[in-house]
Design a protein around this nucleic acid. Structure first.
Lengths: 390, 390
DNA sequence: TCGTTAACTCAAGTTAGTTGAATTATCAAG
DNA sequence: CTTGATAATTCAACTAACTTGAGTTAACGA
């Protein structure tokens, strides 16, 4: 996650081809099914060039040729679609106590997922476990190991050289390690390291609320509260990879200022319930409490709404997204409740007449969303042409 | 400022060349002086390719060939630098009562600047005045009109279809106009429309505090308070071009919540002074008050520090910048005072051990910073290769 | 049924990059 | 003060990848 200032690479025939291959894949993914001429029009290339590139991709097993489909006059266009088995992306989420792994195919469908306890969080041990799970995932899915395109890794931030006070809060053994370099070497794959909120935000691009949305923010309920900001279809990472630490901001509230994640987070909810003698470790337990209209849960929801509304307004004003998605380790009911409970201010720039999406939406919830998002980072990269800074 | 989802363009020989030309110009600009082999190494192109491109650019009058400069063994490299007269960028700032124009040369130096009153803000009138000023600017600077590369336009936001309540607050005649399209047609140039804060943020990239910084935020004191967020060297614009409306957020303060720009902005300062019978319309007047330690000004500074600190912390946590720059329509003294007065929290992710830049810096102040930034948008575009979405 | 339309292919042709050998100028070592 | 190593640069040949223009095929609609 060390972000050095990357200067752009020059374009030469090889890099142009690679760029164009990724671009074509991106068009196929967005469209689901598409013909060559349409890609040519969308990309500004000649149909001949697109034909050549598609022949390449089909030859490499990344595209499947479908039927001709007619649309009006003229020769019906041969449709191409992604070959799900053409590539796989590994998603790994490392938490202090548990290791989560998911394998997605080229379509973004989850073909394997596993949650295993983590007793030893030292890098060597974690890596060994990941290598084992990688093999299991590919075997289980029947995927060719050579078609594994990369791995996304979710780890608790903050990244980089944190201040002494913060260092090693969650995974002390990793605090001095360049995780990106470590995993690139250990897995021998392209690697993308992100925090949970950013990864979960990318998960929404695979058939989720963020599909086809170029600008959105994803408010992620993990242990604390995180934010993934997507601008022009790309994650905003910040200079040190720590953008989106929204849980740490202070917002006004009825009784003065509160730190957001002390009022709005799963931990804060569980602490509030514990104070009232209720243990609710799992999302199911929380869902049941909600369905039973538990007064303590409702009390927490009431006191959480105001700080959350302030946070939403802040995000809208700073980032001007098309929508803000709520997701993560909270039951759907509670997320939906929070969405309704936010009395959104008219003062925001987001309060505009014509909007295509609601200001708040519910995204994927559940424990695996960040893990799937980790894998989605790989897919997103493969479908996004960029004359790569090298 | 309508941001439609742009899909990337394919690469072909012509676009590759254009990309590479921009890339080379960018390297020359960053380095000031540089040899061909160094550009080749930095870009991953062959020296031969760079030689050809540089011959092109020099032939077009964009580069100047300098002396050979030796650095260690081997044939000393011929140095190239930008030809200031090789291109010009026009910056225009439209305010309800005044029109500001600046002309920058390829080096980013201001070769002309003018402030004229604006009595009629109807689009036709404003445009006519701009056309006149463009001619005057080029004549004055001795610049070839054909070398005008584009125009940056600063207008009050919010852009897009704002809600009825907000519509037309500042320039009602423009509320239904697509300013980008309008000026592209009227000026027959590439046009970049931004709000004042974003433009001012880009101005810092020309020999200012933002030069060479890939991630920073720029807090702009205009009428209200705006924020320009630069990520990976590019402005974050948001879905509708309204990102950075930080003045509208509410932050905690001693006596409850305040809307940020009601506590921290030039207007708020002037209102506070007016309540105490002091008129201070100009920056000079404010500077004098500050130098005289005027108690009312000091009182305002005291009450502004806390909300500002909250805002800074929010920006740090959401955007994770290398630094935050304060600038705009405030005297240097007052900006410096505010920088010192912000008691920055240790809770921010920005509180890290190793940082190269201070968390807060003072940028350019004064009336023309947004106007110069408008022109800088053009330069930045010319130096940033991007297989342009078309 | 026949002309129009549009996707697609084939076979040059073009652009812009790469490669490798030759040239030149500086530094450093003997 | 030569001499060899080093590095920038050019020249000429080569190559990759896109474009162009002339067919070919298949669907629609008058």
């Amino acid at each position: 996650m060390t972000t050095k200032t990357l200067h752009p690479a020059g374009a030469n025939p090889g890099r142009s081809r690679s760029h164009n291959r990724q671009m074509v894949l991106g068009h196929v993914r967005r469209a689901g099914q598409i013909g060559r001429a349409e890609i040519a029009r969308a990309s500004g290339l000649s149909t001949q060039a697109v034909s050549n590139i598609i022949a390449d991709l089909a030859g490499d097993g990344l595209l499947l040729e479908g039927e001709r489909v007619s649309s009006g006059r003229g020769l019906p266009a041969v449709q191409y679609s992604l070959n799900p088995a053409g590539g796989y992306a590994l998603g790994v989420e490392i938490r202090p106590d548990v290791l989560l792994v998911a394998l997605l195919d080229l379509n973004g469908d989850t073909v394997f997922s596993r949650r295993t306890p983590l007793v030893d969080t030292r890098p060597e041990e974690v890596t060994a476990q990941i290598l084992t799970l990688r093999k299991a995932a590919l075997t289980h899915a029947g995927g060719d190991p050579a078609r594994l395109m990369g791995a996304g890794i979710v780890m608790p931030g903050p990244f980089g050289t944190a201040s002494a006070a913060q260092k090693g809060l969650e995974l002390p053994e990793w605090s001095d390690i360049d995780a990106n370099l470590w995993f690139t070497t250990a897995l021998d794959l392209p690697v993308f390291v992100e925090n949970d909120a950013n990864a979960a935000a990318m998960a929404e691009r695979n058939g989720g609320a963020g599909e086809g949305v170029s600008h959105y923010a994803y408010l992620y309920f993990g242990a604390g509260l995180g934010l993934g900001i997507v601008t022009n279809g790309q994650l905003m990472q910040g200079a040190f990879g720590n953008a989106g630490e929204i849980g740490h901001i202070t917002v006004p509230s009825g009784n003065g200022a509160v730190v957001l994640e002390q009022a709005v987070s799963r931990l804060s909810l569980q602490a509030h319930l514990a104070e009232n003698g209720i243990a609710a470790a799992t999302s199911d337990a929380l869902a049941q409490l909600y369905d039973a209209s538990d007064p303590h849960l409702m009390g927490w929801l009431n006191q959480a709404a105001e700080p959350l509304t302030h946070a939403i307004t802040t995000i809208e004003n700073l980032c001007d997204p098309q929508t803000i998605i709520l997701g993560g380790a909270m039951p759907d009911q509670i997320l939906d409740h929070l969405i309704v409970a936010c009395a959104l201010s008219d003062r925001s720039v987001s309060n505009r007449d014509e909007r295509e999406l609601p200001r708040l939406m519910r995204g994927r919830s559940g424990r695996m969303s960040a893990t799937q998002g980790a894998a989605a980072l790989v897919l997103n990269h493969s479908f996004t042409p960029r004359l790569t800074p090298h």
